[in-house]
Amino acid sequence: MEIRIVVGGALIHRGRVLAARRSAPPEVAGRWEFPGGKAEPGESEEQALERELLEELGVTARASEPLPGRWTVRAGLELRFWAAELVSGEPQPLEDHSELRWLGPAELAGVDWLDHDREVLPYVARLLDRG
């Protein structure tokens, strides 16, 4: 079976990372994630993330580095995370999200993350400490 990649983006700006609260589907509504989505055929992970952040949040971003780990979301669907930098625009919850928050390192544990997203928080915290 062919594996389709889903890319989640830890969008970093001024020492904080963007968290997005899901509005759908019902089983994850109200929980927080790093925004992103499925890569289209022929698209690199970086291209997919940059396109998804534009579609979901209305911002221009640049994928900067992959974060450790890969997770099977369901058969044939694998989740990977990337760090990304905000290039231009102010994020808006345009698709699938009801709220956005910029979180500093000390605030990362303060929202109810989806399980896979919670697993990359230590790596995200290190990125925030660097910047």
Rank of each mutant, 00 (worst) to 15 (best):
residue 59 V to A: 09
residue 89 G to K: 10
residue 113 W to G: 10
residue 33 E to W: 01
residue 3 I to S: 06
residue 85 E to F: 02
residue 118 R to N: 08
residue 45 E to T: 07
residue 1 M to S: 13
residue 18 L to K: 01
residue 70 R to V: 04
residue 67 L to M: 14
residue 103 L to Y: 06
residue 58 G to W: 04
residue 115 D to W: 12
residue 121 L to N: 09
residue 1 M to I: 11
residue 106 A to E: 15
residue 87 V to H: 05
residue 35 P to K: 08
residue 38 K to E: 10
residue 62 R to Q: 15
residue 41 P to G: 03
residue 77 L to I: 08
residue 79 L to Y: 04
residue 116 H to L: 06
residue 114 L to K: 14
residue 99 E to G: 11
residue 74 R to T: 15
residue 96 D to V: 11
residue 35 P to W: 11
residue 41 P to Q: 03
residue 80 R to E: 04
residue 32 W to E: 10
residue 51 R to N: 05
residue 112 D to M: 07
residue 43 E to Q: 07
residue 10 A to Y: 09
residue 61 A to L: 09
residue 123 Y to P: 06
residue 46 E to W: 08
residue 30 G to H: 09
residue 63 A to E: 07
residue 13 H to E: 11
residue 21 R to E: 15
residue 45 E to H: 07
residue 95 E to D: 12
residue 17 V to R: 07
residue 16 R to D: 01
residue 65 E to A: 03
residue 18 L to D: 12
residue 52 E to G: 07
residue 52 E to D: 09
residue 48 A to F: 00
residue 5 I to S: 01
residue 120 V to N: 12
residue 28 V to Y: 06
residue 48 A to P: 02
residue 18 L to R: 07
residue 108 L to P: 02
residue 79 L to M: 07
residue 66 P to Q: 04
residue 24 A to P: 03
residue 37 G to R: 12
residue 129 D to A: 14
residue 122 P to I: 05
residue 21 R to N: 08
residue 56 E to P: 03
residue 5 I to Y: 03
residue 55 E to N: 03
residue 32 W to Q: 10
residue 92 Q to L: 03
residue 131 G to W: 01
residue 51 R to G: 02
residue 37 G to Y: 13
residue 59 V to C: 13
residue 74 R to N: 10
residue 45 E to Q: 02
residue 103 L to G: 05
residue 34 F to V: 14
residue 78 E to W: 02
residue 116 H to S: 13
residue 54 L to W: 02
residue 53 L to D: 07
residue 43 E to A: 00
residue 121 L to Q: 08
residue 46 E to C: 11
residue 124 V to S: 12
residue 91 P to K: 08
residue 31 R to A: 00
residue 90 E to L: 09
residue 83 A to Q: 04
residue 105 P to R: 15
residue 65 E to G: 02
residue 117 D to N: 15
residue 130 R to S: 10
residue 98 S to F: 04
residue 114 L to Q: 14
residue 28 V to N: 11
residue 32 W to V: 08
residue 123 Y to D: 15
residue 15 G to D: 07
residue 112 D to G: 06
residue 4 R to W: 05
residue 19 A to N: 10
residue 127 L to H: 02
residue 96 D to E: 14
residue 21 R to Y: 08
residue 117 D to R: 13
residue 37 G to E: 14
residue 73 V to P: 03
residue 60 T to M: 11
residue 84 A to T: 12
residue 80 R to S: 01
residue 7 V to K: 01
residue 77 L to S: 07
residue 47 Q to C: 06
residue 25 P to A: 12
residue 81 F to P: 04
residue 56 E to W: 00
residue 69 G to N: 08
residue 118 R to D: 13
residue 30 G to F: 05
residue 87 V to D: 11
residue 55 E to H: 10
residue 42 G to D: 04
residue 108 L to K: 02
residue 57 L to S: 06
residue 39 A to N: 01
residue 30 G to A: 04
residue 98 S to V: 07
residue 72 T to F: 02
residue 105 P to L: 12
residue 65 E to P: 03
residue 131 G to S: 09
residue 47 Q to D: 03
